[in-house]
Computed example of a mutant assay.
Amino acid sequence: MTLIYKISPGKDWQQAEARGRFSGAPVDLADGFIHFSAADQVRETAAKHFAGQEGLVLVAIEAEALGEELKWEPSRGGALFPHLYGELDMSAVRWVRELPLGADGAHLFPEGL
């Protein structure tokens, strides 16, 4: 099983859970797909796009559960990033964890990631 990751404000994620699907953050809606990161990309994503933000959650999604709507496409520096062309159904979510800030202002990721 391949896990991909979404960083989201906790309140936005709670609303998505209540709806049973995640349609995307404003940047996702503007780009026409939901942005995700692979395990080796998610720390850089947090530092680049969420620096210093509190109240975030890290969501792990099973990539294979997303089917053909998930595309791995070149982005930052030519690296392939996972993009979902559709809504994220909560059945593909494997876990959700808080993404707190450490004393140095960087986000603290779960062990093993």
Results as ranks from 00 to 15, higher is better:
Gly20His: 06
Gly20Phe: 06
Gly20Gln: 09
Gly20Glu: 13
Gly20Asp: 13
Gly20Arg: 02
Arg21Phe: 13
Arg21Glu: 14
Phe22Tyr: 13
Phe22Thr: 07
Ser23Arg: 04
Gly24Ala: 05
Ala25Phe: 09
Ala25Leu: 14
Pro26Gln: 10
Val27Ala: 15
Leu29Gly: 05
Leu29Ser: 05
Gly32Trp: 14
Phe33Val: 00
Ile34Arg: 01
His35Gly: 01
His35Glu: 02
Phe36Thr: 01
Phe36Glu: 01
Ser37Lys: 01
Ser37Thr: 09
Ala39His: 06
Asp40Lys: 01
Asp40Gly: 12
Gln41Leu: 06
Gln41Phe: 02
Gln41Asn: 08
Val42Met: 00
Val42Ala: 06
Val42Asn: 04
Arg43Val: 13
Arg43His: 07
Arg43Pro: 08
Glu44Gly: 07
Thr45Glu: 11
Thr45Phe: 02
Ala46His: 05
Ala46Leu: 03
Ala47Gly: 13
Ala47Gln: 11
His49Pro: 01
Ala51Trp: 12
Gly52Phe: 07
Gln53Asp: 04
Gln53Trp: 10
Glu54Arg: 15
Glu54Leu: 07
Glu54Asp: 09
Leu56Lys: 11
Leu56Pro: 03
Val57Trp: 08
Leu58Ile: 13
Leu58Glu: 07
Val59Asp: 01
Val59Thr: 08
Glu62Ser: 07
Ala63Leu: 07
Ala63Gln: 09
Glu64Asn: 09
Ala65Trp: 01
Leu66Asn: 07
Leu66His: 05
Gly67Asp: 02
Glu68Thr: 09
Glu68Tyr: 00
Glu69Ser: 06
Leu70Lys: 03
Leu70Tyr: 00
Leu70Ile: 04
Lys71Val: 08
Lys71Ser: 12
Trp72Glu: 15
Glu73Asn: 08
Pro74His: 11
Ser75Lys: 06
Ser75Asn: 09
Ser75Glu: 12
Gly77Arg: 00
Gly77Ala: 13
Gly77Leu: 06
Gly78Lys: 05
Gly78Ala: 15
Ala79Trp: 00
Phe81Gln: 13
Phe81Gly: 04
Pro82Gln: 10
Pro82Ile: 11
His83Lys: 15
Leu84His: 02
Leu84Trp: 02
Leu84Glu: 01
Leu84Thr: 00
Tyr85Gly: 11
Tyr85Leu: 02
Tyr85Trp: 12
Gly86Pro: 13
Gly86Glu: 04
Gly86Cys: 03
Glu87Arg: 00
Leu88Val: 12
Leu88Ala: 04
Leu88His: 06
Leu88Phe: 09
Leu88Gly: 03
Asp89Thr: 12
Met90Ala: 05
Met90Ser: 03
Ser91Glu: 12
Ser91Gln: 09
Ser91His: 14
Ala92Val: 10
Ala92Tyr: 01
Val93Leu: 03
Arg94Ile: 13
Trp95Pro: 04
Trp95Tyr: 15
Trp95Glu: 14
Trp95His: 11
